[in-house]
Amino acid sequence: MLSSKLTGRRLWIAALVVPPLAFMCLFLVYPILSAFAYAFYEWRGLVRGDFVWFANFHRVLFEYPFSERTLNAFTHNIVVFFALMILQNGVGFLLAYCLWRELWGARFHRIAVFLPVVLSTVIVGLLWKLFLHPLFGAVNVSLRAVGLGTLAQPWLGQDSTALMAIIVANAWHMVGFPTLVFLAGMQRIPSEILDAARMETESEWVKMTKIVWPLVAPSATVVFTLLFVGAFNWFEMPFVMGGIDGSPHGATDVLGLYFYRTAFGSMSASAENFGPGSALAVLIFLFIAVVSSVITLKLRKREIQL
């Protein structure tokens, strides 16, 4: 009687688990594995040629011009990761702290900060492109209006400012997300701990760094890992604002754009190189999978059970 009940239960669980599992295999595992396989073949257009072992990997890592572009794009991803760590997660933490302490207008700001996250990346990208328009953009127009016309720049047209401009746009768009996660973490801190802390010190700084920061470690793990994955898969924002070629002259090129351009060709400059493109996809995937696992494990260790 008991065993048949269990089998029924098992059947029920299996019926629930199998369809999504099959779905995952068909649309996630299978494409990833086939992409792995593609990277080991030579391609003429989209026709598969001979098995070439690691030739495609060698091309993207060590042969001109691919090696140069790979390094350039990878460096930009690293810059993006650290810049967003400060501008998005750092600012997000501070915003969350202010909202949590219920500073003036907290209720309004809680919505205001999160609102841009709901907008589509394409809309935010186009909006910021308009802000940064060299002739009529809000940024340059306001600089000129307050007599700082010399600071007006073609922001998206020079390699010294273009990547940073896109990073700022991205931070503005997404800062609400880490804010929300941190805020949720802070609201979970028991009031006894905070009362105890208040008896020890009046300093807001000490409370923030010694009490709150360690206690929101689980939230930090989540936003850090997601930021890492996001920064190395970055595509939409630079695509909308800098174009598929990483304009100007590769200054905003990142792995995502570079992979797409290499695999499928850029209409206005080059044909498709499907082999090197697949090799790049595999490398990006491996890099993200390995590093984000390490980050997660490391960060988990510093989390404290409440």
Partner: peptide
């Protein structure tokens, strides 16, 4: 010059962009 990598288009686009930026 679009038959191999880097293409002539890659090179002239980057070159002219750098020239116009004074680099």
């Amino acid at each position: 010059f679009r038959y191999g990598e880097p293409t002539g288009s890659n090179l002239i686009q980057a070159g002219v962009s750098k020239m116009l930026n004074g680099q």
